[in-house]
């Protein structure tokens, strides 16, 4: 199995969700060039739960933006779910985000004037799903995160934990290949944080691939694998031994 994977991508279309080769990102800030990510090679398979860690300035955010198809690399290649996405146009990237990626943000990023149900439906609107089907799937995902009785509530009427659960439902509604959570517990208290992490763990157990960005070690402990970045390089990449006991 391992041997086949190393032979080449073309022969192993199976379970690779993320593969990067020499992923590099440079920014020009005035006279200075910031080399935020300096050649990262990653391989994340279906069903993995990976925590990406690193101090600020480690290139963590830049890497996440590229993995989330919000940004394109200066150099290197990136395959998401076996599709080469590092050379796509903005609109094609929008379609990839729409169909392959579910985002959970630190600041929830829900539309404040829309109901929970409408917020969850949003990705489906851009996917061109009919309104009836959208509603059905939004209700299903909201029930999954335990908010079946909060469908018509607007974000200001919900607690922080509930808002983040709406965001999780929204991230899942397109059945994405990858759930990308960027500091999902950054704005939550410890009890609600634990609640959200339990939710992510459950999802992962059901086979959902999750990449989690955090700078908190106890949050990273929930993941099966940790990738530590430093100065734009992968510093450490290891499997958690404590998984299960932390939950």
């Amino acid at each position: 199995m391992l041997a086949r994977i190393q032979v080449g991508r073309s022969t192993t279309l199976s379970d690779e969700i993320i593969r990067t080769e020499g992923l590099t990102k440079h920014y020009v800030l005035g006279a200075e060039t910031v080399r935020a990510v300096r050649g990262v090679d990653l391989l994340i398979r279906r069903g993995e739960f990976v925590a990406v860690m690193g101090p600020s300035g480690s290139g963590k955010s830049t890497l996440m933006n590229m993995i989330g198809c919000l940004d394109t690399p200066t150099d290197g290649k990136y395959w998401l779910n076996n599709q080469l996405v590092s050379e796509l146009t903005d609109d094609d990237l929008a379609r990839v985000r729409n169909r392959q990626i579910g985002f959970v943000f630190q600041t929830f990023n829900l539309l404040p004037r829309a109901t929970a149900a409408h917020n969850v439906e949003l990705p489906l609107i851009y996917a061109g799903v009919s309104s009836k089907e959208r509603r059905r799937r939004a209700e299903e995902k909201l029930a999954l995160v335990g908010l079946e009785d909060r469908m018509e509530h607007k974000p200001p009427e919900l607690s922080g934990g509930q808002r983040q659960r709406v965001a999780v439902a929204r991230a899942l509604v397109n059945e994405p290949a990858l759930l990308l959570a960027d500091e999902p517990t950054g704005n939550l208290d410890s009890v609600t944080s634990a609640d959200i992490m339990r939710q992510l763990n459950d999802l992962n157990k059901q086979g959902q691939t999750i990449v989690l960005v955090t700078h908190e070690h106890d949050i990273a402990e929930h993941a099966k694998r940790q990738i530590h970045l430093k100065d734009g390089f992968v510093e450490r990449d290891f499997m958690n031994e404590m998984v299960g006991s932390a939950v």
């Binding site: 379609r95 729409n98 990023n109 949003l122 851009y126």
Partner: peptide, 10 residues
Amino acid sequence: GVRKALGATK
């Protein structure tokens, strides 16, 4: 930003 992240095209 949210709409674009969730897949809205230009």
